[in-house]
Simulated scan of single mutants.
Amino acid sequence: MAASTPQPKSYQWGQKHDDAITTTVAAPTAFTTGLAASPKSNAAAWRTEITFTNTTTQPFPLVVLQISAAVDGHSAEEVFDDGLQFDRPTLTPGQSVTISSGWIGKGSKYEVTVASADGSQAYTWSGQLGK
């Protein structure tokens, strides 16, 4: 992410943010957390897939990105459950990876924000749940 404004740039689900690290966030789907999920089991939740592609000539550690979410304008708590990925690998030049992330909550407007570690660059995808 190599832009210059601290204000989030907004996208709809499925739109691609073109930059050194291209990013696309798919429309989220609802699910119910499992028995071993944290912070809550058997809770209403939603998940999305986020695809990152390194278009640079240098490795890029995804761990330096912050991924957060909101439902109806309120911060959503990330859920740890089967089928969700928590690994944030280092992307080699030209490499793409898709990770699944999930959050607790349900509502009418869902948002996912991907930001630089220092918060100087942030991009938000939003909309309703997918089918």
Rank of each mutant, 00 (worst) to 15 (best):
M1K: 05
M1W: 08
A2G: 13
A2T: 08
A2M: 05
A3D: 12
S4R: 05
T5S: 15
P6Q: 11
P6K: 13
Q7G: 10
Y11G: 05
Q12N: 09
W13T: 02
G14D: 03
G14H: 07
Q15I: 00
D19C: 04
D19P: 00
D19N: 07
A20R: 10
A20Q: 13
I21F: 05
I21E: 04
T22K: 06
T23A: 15
T24M: 14
T24L: 07
T24Q: 15
V25Y: 06
A26T: 07
A26Y: 07
A27N: 06
A27Q: 11
P28Q: 13
A30G: 03
F31T: 00
T33F: 06
T33D: 05
G34P: 00
G34F: 06
A37G: 01
S41R: 14
N42A: 13
A43Q: 08
A44N: 12
A45G: 02
R47M: 12
T48M: 01
I50C: 02
I50P: 01
T53D: 03
T53H: 11
T53I: 06
N54D: 03
T56H: 02
T56E: 02
L62N: 04
V63D: 14
V63L: 15
V63N: 15
L65A: 11
L65G: 07
Q66W: 10
Q66N: 12
S68V: 08
A69I: 00
A69S: 14
A70Q: 12
D72P: 00
S75V: 10
S75I: 11
E77L: 13
V79R: 05
G83L: 01
L84Y: 13
F86V: 12
F86R: 13
D87H: 10
R88K: 15
R88T: 08
R88F: 08
P89D: 03
T90F: 08
T92D: 11
P93G: 02
G94N: 01
S96M: 09
V97N: 12
S100Y: 10
G102P: 00
W103T: 00
W103Q: 04
W103R: 02
I104K: 04
I104S: 01
G105W: 06
G107Y: 13
G107K: 02
S108L: 10
Y110Q: 09
Y110V: 04
E111Q: 15
E111G: 06
V112K: 06
V114G: 12
A115E: 05
A117K: 10
A117T: 07
A117C: 06
D118Y: 06
G119E: 08
S120Y: 10
A122E: 05
T124S: 07
W125H: 08
S126R: 10
G130V: 04
G130Y: 12
K131G: 14
